[in-house]
Design a protein around this nucleic acid. Structure first.
Lengths: 167, 167
DNA sequence: TTAAACTTTCAAAAATTATTGAAAATTTAT
DNA sequence: ATAAATTTTCAATAATTTTTGAAAGTTTAA
């Protein structure tokens, strides 16, 4: 496989993966493109490479910036803005974990805590409800904790230790 | 909050979370409903509780069964089929991790491995491409491994060790 | 200032995904 | 075997999400 094919395949795959995970295709593809580009890209560049409209590009770039994984970059002698992504994959994972936790897991934990705190009136259905929502709360908390720990500091050391222990 | 409100809130929350993660609302809600129900439910029951059509219920139940987290159950003296979900939350997490790995992570790993194996022609863009896709491959492998290990047997031991190490 | 370069916004259109409901298929009881 | 009960399928429709493109807004150079 040559560079061009590999690149297209990567961008395409990243795009469908995104879709599967509730991230829209354009956003995932822009991110993929910036991730493998050694130079920052302009909006024109992105529009051209991915064949998407100016508006689409602008909106999705904004979202990526909101997520903290793409940055505006200025290029000397150029008037327009350029964009580049976080290149350190560990840092990227960290940032994504941080945002998903903040946006999704924390609110879910809050609801689970709330609903699992209803008064136990002794009926089967209430007992089951409390039991299951409490278990989910516990699981979500553990998962969140592990995710953050793994992805945060010492990730490397931990990963190695872990894999050694478990292989 | 009373049982009814807590139940509605839980089902509603699970539904939107599902959407966020690329699972459709009906599927997530059916799952939520079965998860907290102490008794298996019939299709009629589910349709009634969630106000969704027969076809919708049937299709989404099938998907949940495909995922291995909902089972057909027979109830003595009843002609129609009943459904119940995996109630053990650990087991549920295990099953979901297993399926996501099989359906999403493995195929992605395959593509990453493939595209990161292009020949290095010495140009910046090729070098960057190989570097980044290799890093992603490594990250995905690690994440997959950790997820599976954590969620599989010894989850408890590992969690404790881990949290102790990192606190 | 002005005007060209560039970016953002947003209503409309297109594309995608989810849902319905009724016909077809299947299962079960007699 | 028959028919009633139940489930599945799937074309049509509805709902949602994404994308476009042009107008409005902003920034910069001169």
């Amino acid at each position: 496989m040559n560079y061009k094919d590999a690149k297209d395949k990567f961008i395409q795959t990243w795009g469908s993966l995104g879709t599967l995970w509730g991230i829209n295709k354009a956003m995932a593809q822009i991110h993929a493109l910036l991730l493998i580009s050694p130079e920052p890209l302009s909006m024109e560049d992105i529009m051209g490479e991915l064949h998407i409209s100016r508006g689409n590009t602008s909106m999705n770039l904004r979202q990526l910036i909101d997520w903290g994984i793409v940055f505006k970059t200025s290029v000397v002698g150029e008037r327009k803005e350029f964009f580049s992504s976080e290149k350190d994959i560990q840092e990227l994972a960290k940032q994504i974990a941080r945002e998903r936790s903040r946006r999704e897991i924390q609110p879910t934990l809050k609801v689970l805590k709330e609903v699992s705190s209803i008064e136990d009136d002794g009926t089967d259905k209430t007992k089951e409800f409390i039991k299951q929502t409490k278990s989910l709360h516990e699981l979500a908390e553990t998962a969140d904790s592990i995710m953050n720990r793994v992805v945060n500091q010492e990730a490397n050391w931990i990963t190695k230790t872990f894999i050694k222990l478990l292989k």
